[in-house]
Amino acid sequence: MRTATVIGTGLIGTSVALALTRRGVTVYLDDADTTAARTAEAMGAGSLRVPDGPVDLAVLAVPPAHIGTVLARAQRAQAARAYTDVASVKARPHREIQAAGADPSGFIGGHPLAGGERSGPLAARADLFEGRLWVLTPSERTGRAVLNRALELVSLCGGVPVVMDTGAHDRAVALTSHAPHLVSSLMAARLEHAAEDSVRVSGQGLRDVTRIAAGDPGLWRDILDANADAVADVLEAYAADLGEAVRALRALGSPDPEVRGRAEAGLAELLLRGNRGHARVAAKPGAPTADFAAVPVVIPDEPGALARLFAAVGETGVNIEDVRIEHAPEQPRGFVELLVDRNAAPDLSRLLSVGGWNVTADDTLTVNLR
């Protein structure tokens, strides 16, 4: 691939443009939001100049509801030889492509499973897609050359391609992304009018649960609208479980021992189901089954402390698989959990301790991923 046009310069579109530019592809930027487009250009993501002819690939980084019309307009202008998108919903755009008068043979749906709470070009990163799954959803009319061009895009961005049916994709992301975002928002909404004393004592659990609720409401409204039925199916089952949990909690105060026993058993089973479900979530997308261990370290609340910790780990040669940080602004220190290979964890704990770091436990917590 030598040339590409990215239509839409938000977080994902600009990240795609930065990744392609880094690999030597000439990238052209197009966005109705001229401020966002100029920002992306200033970041080195590409050029606002109009290409002289059709580019090798056009990436439609626009909301799901606009894929059909934007594709039809781009094809009428003969903007590219192949087209793909990065929307997180696939079935409805596929249906709307033909309704808009676009040619489905030149298009393949795409969805990189990457993002962040912040939106806009300033949040973009060239390495956003490295090691992340990138779903491709060809239709029965998608041409082989178009599929190959999309696979090249994924490779240039460092992603891992996965081919899925559009309906299967939408049901999957409803369960793993869209419904969780709405649940996070519902929990965060409980805090809007909560007493200040209650919010002040919030811990890492609340921050973990509500983190993704910080997403752009407009973007998420479009996503939920485009995948409404699949998300509703997930939340309907979730609501049934939630209702059972509420009834069990109320029953714990019953004077009848038999009623209390059934409630305790019901809650215990719900928590065990949660354990079993969590165990199916891999630490990295597409990663094989592996055993990791968490090495907990206390760090001072001072500039550069986290960078020094990572540098110290780097000197040991141990690869960090994931990081969890817990820190309250008013506290003089923070808490970091480094998720590493289980066999390397004891040596890492020892070497960090020798280096003056406060490793809070001699025995690391084993995390089994299967």
Score class of each variant (00 low, 15 high):
residue 138 P to N: 09
residue 154 V to D: 01
residue 200 R to L: 10
residue 37 A to V: 14
residue 211 R to M: 06
residue 225 D to C: 12
residue 200 R to Q: 07
residue 83 Y to K: 13
residue 284 K to C: 01
residue 222 D to P: 02
residue 75 Q to E: 14
residue 16 V to F: 09
residue 210 T to A: 09
residue 167 G to V: 00
residue 363 D to S: 15
residue 53 G to K: 09
residue 345 A to F: 00
residue 208 D to W: 07
residue 83 Y to R: 04
residue 171 R to L: 01
residue 316 T to F: 14
residue 81 R to Q: 14
residue 366 T to D: 08
residue 53 G to W: 13
residue 279 A to Q: 12
residue 138 P to A: 03
residue 195 A to C: 11
residue 144 R to M: 02
residue 66 H to T: 10
residue 143 G to H: 08
residue 191 L to G: 10
residue 80 A to R: 03
residue 280 R to T: 14
residue 285 P to W: 01
residue 167 G to I: 00
residue 279 A to N: 04
residue 350 R to S: 07
residue 277 G to M: 02
residue 7 I to D: 00
residue 38 R to I: 04
residue 351 L to H: 11
residue 169 H to V: 04
residue 10 G to A: 13
residue 267 L to N: 03
residue 308 R to D: 02
residue 246 V to F: 08
residue 78 Q to W: 15
residue 2 R to G: 12
residue 293 A to K: 01
residue 121 P to Y: 04
residue 81 R to D: 10
residue 86 V to Q: 00
residue 173 V to K: 00
residue 279 A to G: 15
residue 1 M to S: 07
residue 204 Q to H: 11
residue 276 R to I: 01
residue 249 L to Q: 08
residue 83 Y to C: 08
residue 100 A to G: 12
residue 356 G to L: 12
residue 41 E to W: 15
residue 81 R to M: 11
residue 230 A to D: 02
residue 190 R to W: 06
residue 369 L to M: 04
residue 306 L to D: 00
residue 268 A to E: 07
residue 147 L to Y: 02
residue 331 Q to C: 04
residue 302 E to H: 08
residue 106 G to R: 01
residue 335 F to E: 06
residue 226 A to D: 05
residue 88 S to G: 13
residue 72 A to L: 13
residue 89 V to T: 15
residue 305 A to F: 05
residue 41 E to H: 15
residue 41 E to G: 06
residue 258 E to G: 05
residue 25 V to A: 07
residue 142 T to R: 10
residue 248 A to S: 14
residue 253 G to S: 10
residue 303 P to F: 10
residue 158 G to C: 10
residue 74 A to H: 11
residue 120 G to E: 00
residue 166 T to F: 09
residue 209 V to L: 11
residue 232 A to S: 06
residue 209 V to A: 05
residue 111 H to A: 11
residue 240 A to M: 05
residue 233 D to P: 10
residue 257 P to C: 06
residue 56 D to Q: 13
residue 370 R to F: 15
residue 155 S to Y: 04
residue 170 D to R: 03
residue 143 G to A: 15
residue 370 R to A: 10
residue 328 A to I: 00
residue 298 V to W: 11
residue 239 A to C: 05
residue 330 E to I: 13
residue 354 V to R: 12
residue 143 G to L: 09
residue 95 R to C: 03
residue 266 G to E: 07
residue 257 P to T: 08
residue 303 P to M: 07
residue 238 Y to G: 01
residue 345 A to C: 04
residue 129 F to S: 03
residue 28 Y to M: 06
residue 157 C to N: 06
residue 282 A to Y: 01
residue 323 V to K: 08
residue 73 R to M: 08
residue 96 E to P: 13
residue 295 V to K: 00
residue 188 A to S: 14
residue 2 R to H: 13
residue 282 A to K: 10
residue 21 T to Q: 14
residue 80 A to H: 14
residue 277 G to S: 09
